[in-house]
């Protein structure tokens, strides 16, 4: 489980990402995406590395990281589960699913279960409105998610052996 600081290997990974993208026009979002794809979050140690490479202030980089809902500034659980809160899902029982997700996991939005298996995030539309209500697990979208299906999904995630 990563703590609040990154290992030398992760710092090297961050530096490699920054080197790979720094020449791109408007490189900051691609850099942040690449870091989060690698590490699961954007650690504070990444900020000065990016700032130096892009010739921007640390405040500017931090400002961008904090603006976007997608970027995490704390390490997630082994799986990130997003539950759609938007209107189409609301019309198909989404509010009950939100409540069920929080209650059954015993956590609120933006929190991680004590066993480190699942982080719960709200999301505003997954573009799966014809199969509402929808959730996203990693890069997989799931539709027509009843509370029972949600429980089966979570059970499956908990059973997965951490890599």
């Amino acid at each position: 489980m990563p703590g609040t600081s990154v290992s030398p290997a992760n710092l090297a990974a961050i530096q490699a990402v920054v080197e790979r993208h720094r020449g791109q026009a408007g490189a900051l979002l691609p850099i942040l995406h690449a870091i989060q794809d690698d590490l699961g979050w954007v650690p504070p140690e990444a900020i000065p590395v990016i700032a130096a490479a892009l010739n921007q202030s640390r405040a500017e980089i931090h400002g961008v990281v904090s603006f976007y809902h997608h970027f995490r500034t704390s390490p997630p659980g082994r799986h990130v589960v997003q539950v759609c809160r938007a209107e189409s899902c609301q019309a198909k029982g989404g509010v009950a699913l939100e409540e069920h997700a929080k209650r059954s996991l015993g956590i609120d939005w933006h929190q991680t279960t004590p066993d480190g298996a699942v982080s719960l995030e709200p999301v505003y539309c997954l573009g799966n409105c014809a199969c509402s209500p929808a959730i996203r697990v990693g890069d997989e979208i799931l539709g027509r998610v009843s509370c029972a299906r949600f429980d089966r999904v979570i059970e499956g995630l908990r059973e997965e052996v951490p890599a």
């Binding site: 408007g26 979002l29 997608h70």
Partner: peptide, 8 residues
């Protein structure tokens, strides 16, 4: 293709 980051 460039990815956004969850900002409506």
């Amino acid at each position: 293709v460039r990815l956004g980051a969850g900002a409506y």
